[in-house]
Design a protein around this nucleic acid. Structure first.
Lengths: 142, 142
DNA sequence: TATTGTTATACTCTATAACTATA
DNA sequence: TATAGTTATAGAGTATAACAATA
């Protein structure tokens, strides 16, 4: 049996989404192996760089994550010296995160790598198609 | 800080893809909790039902999985009595998989649940938008 | 030599539950 | 009561490496 015709399975949108996402994650992983960062980690660093002082809940909400999932992510980044924590002034339950200088430097490198990765992904589409795809995808999670 | 503006992060197509996929997986999980099947497991049962006698390599290729990943999936389904194995006649390295009657029954139920799940997902789009989205996604993994 | 199945192993992501401190 | 952070734990998905049997 040389190749399986997927047939009806191809009509499953959820599966197409999963396969497309998988392909992108794999490429991301290869592209970022030297930086030692996952997609989620880059997202956390990026958000923290843009919004110094944010709390874990903010990260969780912005990235559709559970609190516990966020903890594990942030903890790993702190351990590597990329993020630091400080007590939040407004609300003592919260913790204000910011990037270390090391984190800032790595984020800059990561942003450049993200650009290349996104070019690889987006070169499949022209401007109109890209805008359409972005809008259609947003309808799913928004 | 009430809500974080994602800003530039929203321009990352890979992240939109991940969030959309995550939202769909979460809904799938809730919807299929009573059947005790994951999306991947349903895909394996579905393919095996459509192509009895297929080998692990066929499943791996059809679903973009590693051989080892496929093993774990198939093994769990065999353990639950949903799939069985037989030696492949053409090539003694291969194993021919097929569904048990129990697997067939569960697959039928799963297909009905998939229909409902897909309706939930697809009601966001009209026919033209759906066709466009499917085609654009296929460009990523194809 | 290459492919198929197998096992061991490990890492990421995700989520639930229960706890503490604060609001 | 509700929220924020924390910890422990578990399951799903993914992948690499190494091995045996077969092609």
């Amino acid at each position: 049996m040389a190749r399986i015709a997927r047939g009806p399975l191809d009509t499953i949108l959820g599966l197409r989404l999963r396969r497309a996402n998988g392909a992108v994650q794999r490429h991301f992983g290869e592209h970022f192996a030297d930086l030692g960062l996952t997609q989620k980690q880059v997202s956390v660093l990026w958000l923290t760089g843009d919004h110094p002082g944010l709390a874990q809940t903010d990260l969780a909400a912005a990235l559709d994550m559970d609190r516990a999932t966020t903890m594990a992510l942030v903890h790993a980044l702190e351990k590597r010296g990329l993020m630091t924590r400080a007590p939040a002034l407004s609300d003592r339950r919260k913790i204000a995160f910011s990037l270390t200088s090391q984190g800032s430097i790595l984020l800059d490198k990561a942003k450049a790598a993200v650009d290349e990765h996104e070019d690889w992904l987006k070169r499949r589409f022209d401007a109109a198609e890209l805008a359409t795809l972005e809008e259609l995808l947003a309808r799913i999670y928004r």
